[in-house]
Design a protein around this nucleic acid. Structure first.
Lengths: 234, 234
DNA sequence: CGTCTCTTTTTGTGTAGACTTTAATTTTTT
DNA sequence: AAAAAATTAAAGTCTACACAAAAAGAGACG
């Protein structure tokens, strides 16, 4: 006989708690029993209950405060987790053959809007890289990127003719803070040419600012081909 | 040397591990010491090391496999976590005054594309609700939603004149699976009117399909006003 | 009445140890 | 040599207990 009869793992507890919320037994804003009482109910230790409830709080179902206890969140703060893939991986995951092409790469002074956006000081040297990512030779993404020279000095010697700036950066500047935005923009004449769409077409766009320990590293705009959608399930 | 005093919380361990990866002391693909050895190094128990490493793996920095050990991920799978807020809360968080207005609500048969999208069977009854969300009386979002009657029977009696369908659903159907997509669409004449933009304007759009234990509940398209961007930091 | 301090409840985190599960590795058998 | 079986190292989880830290609530005091 397997002992699984009364073994209440933290996963079972999580499931039971979710079921009770779903069934309405525990209503939004309701305070639920404290960990000790639940431990008795599930005949396990408080440690196990703690892990279950902690994870459910992490996942946005519960709110926990010392002394105040644990309560059901009225509007469960469901969070979508988008994995931000490398373009190459995204293309290959969709079954396409990835191809990279450099459009231009040149050292220049950051324009005012960029300097403001990145809070650059007096040193405005940046490397401006523009490139295309293809899937089966059809345009997939146009990338317009600026890399702050002062933050990544070797960028001046980098060769972007075969390796994309994003992959180069990942190898060079391993860990960073990121601000990522999604928006809809309009294809101007140049972008329309790159992405092979008509001028004025809506283009799904991602903007990404990256810092390394507080100092700005790069600003990138990524324009996706027509019909692109970013999807997640949870 | 500073053999780490006795203040080794799991958070400190996480930070130390991250620092070692950043500094290149632990390189991508490198196997790091097992939990027991790290516990000795940090002079704490394996439980504490386990929590630190488990969370770092959860956050996408490490990969852990029983018997195989823990290694540094070569391309850290950084995931963006977007909190999907209620429109009301989003508007209020931006400092605006929220206003809701129902455009239309009527029971109808799901069109073919919707039936296909939701994998509806023979019962195609849906409630089609269209509504506007305003911030300080300027259009913020136009919502076009279908709710599957068979999955949520009380929808036929629901009054959407003052309460938005999303908030109504949250109160009525507590827990669900969700597929969420972001894309850029083009404003047609009607949408342009609702959002007060010119026809053809790019519109940031979110699509959301919701299931309750496998059966489809609702499909919603949410069109955001010009200039909207969805932002996250990590 | 407000505000300050004290108590107490509840979660947060830690220790020490045990058993379980997975799967890489080694050994044995076919 | 290939396949099957045994070994074993590592993470995964649990128990049982302890103390820390936050903060709600109560009481004291001006």
């Amino acid at each position: 006989m397997t002992q699984t009869a009364d073994t209440t793992g933290y996963k079972e507890i999580k499931q039971t708690v979710l079921d009770r919320i779903r069934s309405g037994q525990w209503l939004p804003d309701m305070l639920l029993p404290n960990e000790q009482d639940l431990a008795v109910e599930f005949s396990c230790t408080r440690t196990t209950v703690n892990r279950a409830l902690r994870e459910l709080a992490e996942e946005g179902f519960l709110e926990r405060r010392r002394k105040a206890g644990t309560r059901v969140l009225s509007a469960p703060q469901r969070q979508a987790r988008f994995t931000i893939p490398l373009v190459r991986e995204e293309v290959e995951a969709l079954g396409g053959t990835y191809r990279y092409a450099l459009v231009s790469a040149q050292a220049e002074q950051a324009p005012d809007w960029l300097a403001a956006r990145l809070a650059l000081g007096s040193d405005r040297r940046v490397m401006h890289v523009r490139c295309m990512h293809f899937s089966d030779n059809t345009p997939f993404q146009f990338e317009d990127r600026w890399i702050v020279t002062a933050s990544v000095p070797p960028v001046e010697q980098a060769d972007f003719s075969t390796l994309g700036p994003n992959e180069w950066l990942i190898q060079t500047v391993p860990f960073t803070n990121v601000e990522l935005s999604f928006l809809a923009s309009r294809a101007d004449a140049e972008l329309a040419g790159f992405l092979d769409v008509t001028v004025g077409e809506p283009v799904f766009t991602a903007e990404r600012i990256t810092w390394l320990q507080g100092s700005p590293v790069t600003f990138a705009k990524m324009y996706f081909a027509a019909g692109y959608r970013m999807t997640t399930r949870f």
